[in-house]
Amino acid sequence: MGRSLARLFVERGDWVALLGRDAEELARSQSDLQARGAPGVRVVTALCDLEDTGTFRPALEGVEQSLEGLDTVVVTAAVFATQEKLEADPVLAQKMLTVDFANTIVFCEEVRKKLLLRGTGTLCVFSSVAGDRARKPVVLYGAAKAGLSAYLEGLDHRYRSQGLTTVCVKPGFVKTAMTAGLPTPPFAGDPDEVAQTVLEAIDRGTPVVYAPPIWRAVMTAIKAMPRFIMRRAKF
């Protein structure tokens, strides 16, 4: 999804910095964006790993310099595993909880400071519909994402008036590497469509965006379900 979104940015002429942990992959995506981008687009990369908080500040400062400032930061990375795997492997569960909740927030805090210093900017973070309602297949993952969504909402309340716009993306099921091997539910989305929805939300400053948009209705229905149904439901 990050790749699709970055393409939309460069096609309209935005400069982009890619952060990631695999230098070779970053370089390949960099040349892709360079070739697709409008003339004069600048694409830079920096190594950054959500598992290692020490990489956050150097990466952000590096790309801030090479892009001559940051106005929008998008966080798409996360760890995902099925509930069964997370229950069976506490090390993996801890990694997921750390990366998806604590470290993502630590990263966002770095970004918050930078954007507030600048006076204006947008922080767009991919949370998940899993954080909207506790459900059997996403007890742990959903807990991390619920926390993340709460943080993003708080950030929006507290800092929007000071120029920091927060966009919390709640993807429903999107066919990506993260969801590979899972049975495809109804309303599954495609990364390119999701990217388009997210780009519009970033431009408008929409605080919460569901992608594909139909998931807003789906989650409203699920949130309205009483506990005794959720205990029986399989989803």
């Binding site: 790749r3 390949r28 995506s29 040349s31 892709d32 070739a35 697709r36 990506t176 590497a177």
Partner: peptide
């Protein structure tokens, strides 16, 4: 289909 990057043009 996800491996759809341009290497060079």
């Amino acid at each position: 289909t996800r491996a759809n990057r341009i290497i060079h043009f």
